[in-house]
């Protein structure tokens, strides 16, 4: 079987079976993605960041929470690549370990938020009427609260920590996705191709899941990639207020927040986690743009 999977087999204009057609589609998508330089930069950066934070124990030779008050706020040196923070902890190690927390939080929030928003929005948009009004008013209620205040209330009700922060951010982040998915659904709801599917006798659930959701996906992906940095910052604000990651756990946002006093004299202390956040957001953005192009067969 391996021998059969050649380049020609993957690039044929006339696939012989559904399985082959699916592989051709995937391979073409990959080729297109690979041809998009910026998207590849994004993919490689994201991969490096995730791998590096997973391999943190191997890459960091210092303990991320070992304090050394004698060597606090040291500039970058051979021993401490990124210098040390206000408690003398190695920033390089904290960035690596912090990546686990921060990236983990971002990914979990996105995995929670995007499907919920997509489902609420497309159901409301497709069904219309009472369901639409009900679901959208609920969405409005969540939208009406300032994000941070609502998150704070939730974390205060639960117990402070990463899990609560993730749930709190997810609760406040889904409404824009629902609005987006609803807007997209409304543009295709009365189209002939949806009418044609209705005329095959398909039920509403099938139409929403198999025919409408795939069309909303691309704008949701773009929104997700734009939202990544916002999620990191909300997590940081929660951490800063003592409601997110708890010390001594390293987390990029919290690292900036706790060192903001040193921005003028020891600029590297808050700047380095800032760069990490910036690079992560940008990489997710580039990756998302590339994925959106691949997901839309018309652009091929």
């Amino acid at each position: 079987m391996i021998g059969v999977i050649s380049r020609d087999w993957l690039l044929t204009e006339t696939p012989a079976s559904r399985a082959q057609a699916a592989w051709v589609r995937r391979y073409r998508g990959w080729l297109q993605f690979r041809g998009n330089g910026l998207a590849m930069v994004g993919l490689v950066t994201v991969a490096i960041m995730i791998l590096a934070s997973l391999a943190a124990p191997l890459l960091a030779w210092q303990d991320a929470s070992a304090q050394n008050l004698a060597g606090r706020l040291a500039p970058p040196s051979f021993a401490h690549w990124f210098g040390t923070d206000e408690l003398g902890r190695d920033i390089y190690a904290r960035i690596l370990y912090g990546g686990r927390v921060t990236l983990g939080m971002v990914v979990s929030v996105v995995l929670l938020v995007a499907p919920v928003g997509l489902a609420v929005g497309s159901v409301a948009g497709y069904l219309g009427g009472l369901a639409d009004r009900l679901l959208m008013r609920v969405t409005d209620v969540f939208l009406a609260f300032p994000r941070l205040v609502l998150a704070l209330a939730f974390v205060a009700a639960l117990k402070p920590g990463i899990t609560s922060a993730i749930i709190a951010i997810a609760l406040t982040a889904w409404p824009p996705y629902a609005r987006l998915a609803r807007a997209d659904t409304l543009t295709v709801r009365h189209s002939d191709f949806i009418a044609a599917v209705r005329l095959t006798g398909a039920g509403s659930l099938r139409i929403i899941v198999r025919h409408i959701m795939p069309l909303c996906l691309s704008s949701v992906i773009v929104r997700v990639t734009l939202d990544m940095s916002g999620i990191i910052l909300t997590a940081a604000s929660l951490g800063f207020l003592g409601m997110g990651a708890q010390p001594p756990m390293p987390e990029w946002g919290t690292m900036i927040a706790s060192s903001r006093a040193f921005i003028l004299d020891q600029w590297w202390v808050p700047t380095i986690p800032g760069i990490a956040i910036f690079v992560a957001s940008l990489a997710f953005n580039l990756l998302g743009d590339g994925m959106r192009d691949v997901l839309d067969p018309r652009q091929r």
Partner: peptide, 20 residues
């Protein structure tokens, strides 16, 4: 009913799902 009665639309650009 939908098995017995089918319809063909005016605009062949609009009546086929663009991503299928």
């Amino acid at each position: 009913f939908h098995q017995r009665v089918q319809m063909v639309f005016q605009d062949p650009y609009g009546s086929l799902h663009p991503r299928q």
